[in-house]
């Protein structure tokens, strides 16, 4: 599974989301690779991704940026909640 964490700047919040998504994957015993991206590069970064993680405020901008892409868009409210990220990842790939 390829997962991309997206924020506006490509550092900071997306790196936090990437780190905590990696923890969720490890905890649940899932197979996956997580990368971080900014909005400007998400179309390329997510070209072969199954899941895109982002925030409620950015989800529409991400949707517009990726265009025709079959990745599942998953909205994370608390970037530090490994529980929330794990539950939503399992839903997305299930």
């Amino acid at each position: 599974m390829r997962i991309v964490a997206v924020c506006g700047a490509g550092i900071g919040t997306s790196a936090i989301l990437q780190t905590n998504a990696e923890r969720a994957i490890a905890r649940e015993g899932l197979r996956g690779v997580v990368s971080a991206s900014d909005l400007a590069h998400v179309a390329d970064q997510a070209a072969d991704a199954q899941v895109i993680l982002t925030s409620p405020e950015l989800v529409e901008a991400v949707r517009a940026a990726i265009g025709r892409n079959y990745a599942e868009l998953v909205v994370i409210e608390n970037y530090f909640s490994v529980d929330e990220i794990a539950d939503k990842l399992i839903d997305a790939i299930g």
Binding site: A9, G10, T13, S55, P56, E57, Y79, F80, S81
Partner: peptide
Amino acid sequence: AVVDELGPYIVVAPGLALAHARP
């Protein structure tokens, strides 16, 4: 400017804002 442009997505957890911009 990041918040003006993209909204308050930097508020990443209850009570916590993670302010940042590009390098």
